[in-house]
Simulated scan of single mutants.
Amino acid sequence: MSAVKAIIGFMAETVWLAFVLVGMVLLVLGSGAVQLSSFSFKPSGTQGPLLVAVGCVIFAVGVFLAWWSMRGVRALSARRYKVDFESPAASDGAAAEHVTIAGSLSRAMPKGYELWLMRSWASNQAGDRPVGKVNIETDGLKWRLDNAYIGGSTGDLVTLQGWVAGPDGALLLATWNEGKSLYARLMNETGTAWTAATDFPGIRRIPGDTLASGRLELRRRAREG
């Protein structure tokens, strides 16, 4: 079933317009309405109904493929929208809570989608937390997030992951960020200590219109010097 969906998704993005155009041409030819100065065509016998029937089928297939290509995340796949991490390298680790993270996409994201970075720790099972919305370069393939807060303490293993977020997913992540900022301000104003019990909960389930792709594990290391 997944292979069938992948094939339909590829056809939907590449050939739906050709199906629609060919179907329309056959419908016009079958109706016998082609009367040009340099060309004319008049179907005889069963040619007309046959051309109309075939044209209707091809046109319907084109409309279906166009609809499929507009279904957003249902046409996404981790293989086709792969998120790669290029820096920092996993072997380098991270000497600070804030780092610059950069990478690339296997292809430009669909219209209306955003790329977000998420973080989690092996020592903390409270869900994934947004790092931030990624800045994508004009080519649509290179991305970068400066001063990204990854948190953790020396020795912690921090896992970063890319989320290709649709409208619902992006709204959830942006709302989470706003809520976390307000919560952090309240914690600081009241002098409440950050513990496992008082920590702001992460996101435990990926939104339905969002795809998780790419993974980078960084070990927090002590600062040099």
Rank of each mutant, 00 (worst) to 15 (best):
G166C: 10
W163M: 10
D146G: 03
G140W: 09
G166N: 12
R144Y: 07
A193K: 10
L172V: 14
A193H: 02
L173M: 13
T175C: 04
D139H: 06
P167G: 07
G152Q: 06
G151K: 11
N147H: 11
A184F: 11
T159W: 02
A148Q: 04
A174F: 02
P201H: 07
A184Q: 15
R144T: 10
A196P: 00
D156C: 01
T195D: 01
V134S: 05
E189M: 12
T192D: 06
A165S: 14
D199C: 06
N188L: 15
E178G: 01
T159M: 10
G166F: 09
T198S: 15
R144D: 06
K133I: 08
T192C: 05
G151M: 08
G152L: 03
G151H: 09
G155R: 05
L141A: 07
A196H: 00
S153Q: 09
G166L: 09
L186G: 10
T138Y: 09
P167K: 11
D156A: 12
A170H: 01
T138D: 15
V158H: 01
M187P: 00
Y183K: 04
E137A: 15
N177F: 01
V134N: 01
G152M: 03
W176V: 02
L171H: 10
T195F: 00
L160F: 05
L171W: 03
T192V: 13
L171V: 04
Q161L: 02
G155Y: 03
D146L: 10
V164R: 01
P167M: 07
Y183L: 05
N188V: 10
A197V: 10
D199I: 05
T190Y: 00
L157C: 00
V158N: 02
G169H: 04
W176G: 03
L186R: 15
G151R: 11
A196Q: 05
T175R: 14
P167C: 08
W176A: 05
N177I: 11
D146Q: 11
T192F: 00
G191K: 09
I150C: 04
S181G: 07
N135H: 11
L172Q: 15
P201N: 08
L145G: 11
A196F: 00
L182P: 00
G162W: 01
L160S: 03
A148S: 06
L173R: 04
T190W: 00
N135L: 09
E178F: 01
A184H: 13
K142H: 14
A148W: 05
M187I: 12
L160V: 03
A148R: 04
Q161A: 13
Y183D: 12
L173C: 06
M187G: 02
L173W: 07
W194G: 02
M187R: 15
E178S: 08
W163F: 13
L160C: 01
T154H: 09
A184R: 15
W143G: 07
A170D: 02
A197D: 14
L141Y: 03
Q161Y: 00
D199V: 06
L186E: 15
A184T: 14
V158M: 10
I136Y: 01
Q161R: 15
D199M: 12
D168S: 12
Y149T: 07
